[in-house]
Amino acid sequence: MSGWVTLSSRAPGARVPRPAADQPPSKTGQRSSVTLGPRDRLIGQLHIDGDVLLSGTIEGEIHATGDVEIDDEAKVTASVAGSDVSIRGHVSGPVTARKRLVVARSGSVTGDVRVARLVIQDGASFSGNVSMGPQVEAAAPQEPEPEAPAPEVQVLPATDGNAGPSAPAGKGKPVPIKGKPKR
């Protein structure tokens, strides 16, 4: 895959680093990622083979094979489709989430939603028809997910008595999954 596409009015230093080429693509298929900053505007259709983060004004249609994230400041008047969809801004239009839709407390959705799973946080605003179930996954065009090779796991036989210093209690540093760009 060609890598990351970043459309953003935010500082370029804030973009998420590109994964190393030897890393297998993650399970969500993060092959590419599009970011529309708060001052960006899109009128039309966006089909993206990857993830989308929207915080501007969008009118039209957003279709992502990966996840769609709609930020607080976003005003979306469009049909939105993605795998995991999380909404913190305003959305007016039909929403399809093949996996899960999360409407955060700052989010508002007006439109019909088709989801496999749905979470609405207290304070969120929602109006529309909800159809829920696994049929969403079947009906939606499935992306060919590259199957990551299963990591080899060695199961050590349990030894009684002193096991030795085999597993030091590892304190991993918390790794931020997504860098929040700052101006």
Partner: peptide, 16 residues
């Protein structure tokens, strides 16, 4: 006001 936790299932129309 509406709160839906993960794992809940809903089919129908919502007016708020």
């Amino acid at each position: 006001r509406l709160q839906i936790e993960d794992g809940a299932s809903l089919n129908g129309h919502v007016r708020m």
